[in-house]
């Protein structure tokens, strides 16, 4: 199993919609609206590192209102 955290920078104030659309993506385990220079942090739990990339690049980045993402893969 691979766990990863995806920092999501938005460009819309519709944080609720973004959060729920991100949570709807398969493999996304949890998501929170956060204070600071990113707007949402999503936790991803999948089988392989390739699946992490798929979720971040094809899933989350394709949600309307997502400007950019940055992914951190857990090592422990």
């Amino acid at each position: 199993m691979v766990t990863a955290y995806v920092m999501v920078k938005a460009n819309t104030g519709e944080a609720d919609r973004l959060k729920s659309q991100i949570l709807d993506i398969g493999g996304v385990d949890d998501a929170h609206i956060v204070a600071g220079d990113v707007d949402i942090i999503a936790k991803v739990d999948v089988e392989s590192p390739a699946a992490v990339k798929e979720i971040a690049a094809d899933g989350i980045q394709h949600v309307a209102g997502v400007e950019d993402t940055q992914t951190y893969i857990a090592m422990d």
Binding site: G13, I33, A35, D37
Partner: peptide, 14 residues
């Protein structure tokens, strides 16, 4: 705040 779209987010959640 540093970007205008965040106004609504912080009003609602912070």
């Amino acid at each position: 705040i540093d970007e205008d779209y965040r106004e609504d987010i912080y009003r609602k959640f912070a």
